[in-house]
Design a protein around this nucleic acid. Structure first.
Lengths: 339, 339
DNA sequence: TAATGATATGCAAACGTTATCATATTTTAC
DNA sequence: GTAAAATATGATAACGTTTGCATATCATTA
């Protein structure tokens, strides 16, 4: 169907090797021949077959991305960042949305290995890392983002400083005068949930505020658990004046619980959320939130990947930690005098 | 590095063909041999090399997706739908985010052709269809979504009934008693923008409301143009009581313009938006909106793709039109008596 | 028992490249 | 003017599969 090197070679009565040299802009072709071949390539609209190249070169110039849910802003921005730098370097990405299912994750990983991806960028949900270890042993470069697996051996990763994220969130609340600050964090067997609790505690301790276990709740990053835990916090802590919620969906749930109780934000409860992008800019009050630099996470992961793919031999694994930001909007009352 | 058919064959002193037959579950292998081979495949952890298979079979089991912006909910949900059905059928997707640049779109398309994708699902922004025509000529199955190109030849597509979308939006406003209804539609050289204006007009005409050109504005689907056009509408039409905005970003812009003028939604201006997902559920007032069945668009496109890829010979192109829905929330006042 | 057909297995070519090697031609240098 | 070096070109093998063909074995049937 499509034109191959052989076709061109035949038309011009030259060898396939010569045509290949021209296509790849290599030495040892006379100017006349090069000219002639170039014209023919143009005329017959030759397109190199990357599949054949990949087979020969043992490299597909393809990176697999496995994430739990592409409809979450957090992940779609990361993908945009990855795509941007990878494409500029001649790579393309195979995208896999596991829908938060460990089973599908495994299916996808096998598929990607069969497709001979050169590298893998993973936001894994699975707790079973047998397959992943196997993949790494195969020599496929793996980079973890968002959440870190518990592996003995070292590995590459790009994350934010999760402890610092909650630290600056809680510090902000403390600076505004709050003392009874609740938290809804995430699962403690995931680094994200765990680290975010650490930062909360550290902020309190460093400000000589006693840690009150009643103010600590653990959710599962989903909206429902934000809602439930907020109700719990409100019931158990009558004097709580502020809360930090460690994921966007839980933030939405928590706000609904607060409103349902007839409480006002920020007057009755000040709130700092997590990953609240609000592209519409229409949420009222606008939510003060921790923001991760998603596109930069994606870019950093992609750049690290490129580096790994160009190296040969020993690789010294790297953990790239980016800074979270506190985006001050209206849900803490910090802006009330500025308006 | 990884184990090949040849490796296995050598270990067992059988031919490569035999091993291949076992791997592909084909006839003409004795039970004993099959058993033996199966065990070896397991033992040496054989993984088929899809690159080699693709070269031989002239099919990569890969579909390229080209979209303008993955961070828009509209597209991320479509991708989820596509991914879901394609993966179940052994295909994977190469994702390309053009960032709304026609130039990058061209770059990506060429890349995808070189990678020998079996099919292409496109939400194109480019107006130059030379390349795309070329791709179709090559025998690659192409399916358009969202926005239709102006091509002489027939082609496959999955869209919603855009005229109907605005028709039901405007009809809703008319039923609520509005007569002076403005519209902010999209670019008239894109089918989406054009059709959405058609539906608006039809709704008015069928309800014996005269069309007033002052009530019609044309934006570019971006937030800024929603804002600007809303201001324009408000200035030129003192008696306008309702507006239909034909994209999510323009809806956000329009609402800001309305609020800035000190007008209330829905009391002073009733509004129907487009594609307003509001995953937080925290926008107040919540926006009555046209919703496209994104995941179904994705699924339909993927299923049509599978059909095309399994056919040989003549393909009778198909235009699949899905139904938009009106999601009634609070921005039109329709719910005021129900509460 | 001989003939027939089904089953089992291997060989070799092919998919479209790239890369190594050999050979032929040209250029450079003294 | 010749040796050495650089350039130009092609033949061939290889990457890991699948598949058509040839051959060999086995079971079936008249």
């Amino acid at each position: 169907m499509s034109v191959t090197l052989k076709d061109i070679a035949k038309k011009l009565n030259v060898s396939v090797s010569t045509v290949s040299r021209v296509v790849n802009n290599k030495k040892y072709v006379s100017p006349k021949t090069r000219e002639k071949v170039l014209k023919a390539l143009e005329e017959y609209n030759y397109t190199p077959n990357q599949v054949a190249r990949s087979l020969k070169n043992k490299s597909t110039n393809t990176v697999g991305i496995v994430i739990p849910d592409i409809t979450e802003d957090f992940f779609s921005y990361i993908i945009k960042g990855i795509d941007h730098v990878l494409v500029k370097n001649g790579y393309s990405i195979i995208l896999c949305d596991t829908n938060e299912s460990a089973e599908r994750e495994e299916l996808y990983l096998n598929l990607l290995v069969e497709k001979q991806v050169d590298g893998l960028i993973l936001a894994t949900v699975s707790k079973d890392h047998k397959l992943i270890k196997n993949i790494m042993k195969r020599g496929i470069s793996v980079i973890f983002i968002d959440n870190l697996p518990k592996l003995k051996n070292s590995y590459d990763s790009v994350i934010i400083d999760n402890a610092k994220a909650s630290y600056i969130a809680v510090e902000h609340l403390i600076e505004l005068g709050h003392r009874n600050i609740g938290i809804i964090t995430g699962k403690q067997d995931e680094t994200t949930g765990y680290e975010r609790l650490i930062g909360y505690k550290r902020a309190l301790i460093e400000n000589n505020i006693e840690i009150d276990e009643n103010l600590i709740t653990v959710g599962d990053f989903k909206e429902k658990s934000g809602y439930n835990n907020m109700k719990l916090l409100l019931e158990k802590n009558k004097n709580m004046t502020a809360v930090f919620v460690a994921s966007s969906k839980m933030t939405f749930g928590a706000i609904k619980a607060i409103k349902e109780k007839g409480l006002r934000i920020p007057e009755d409860i000040a709130l700092v959320g997590f990953d609240v992008h609000d592209p519409s800019g229409l949420i009222t009050p606008s939510i003060t939130t921790i923001i991760q630099p998603e596109e930069n996470i994606g870019k950093a992961a992609a750049e690290l990947m490129l580096k790994r793919l160009s190296e040969k031999g020993e690789k010294y694994h790297q953990k790239i930690v980016l800074e979270p930001q506190l985006l001050i909007r209206d849900s803490c009352g910090a802006n009330k005098y500025k308006k």
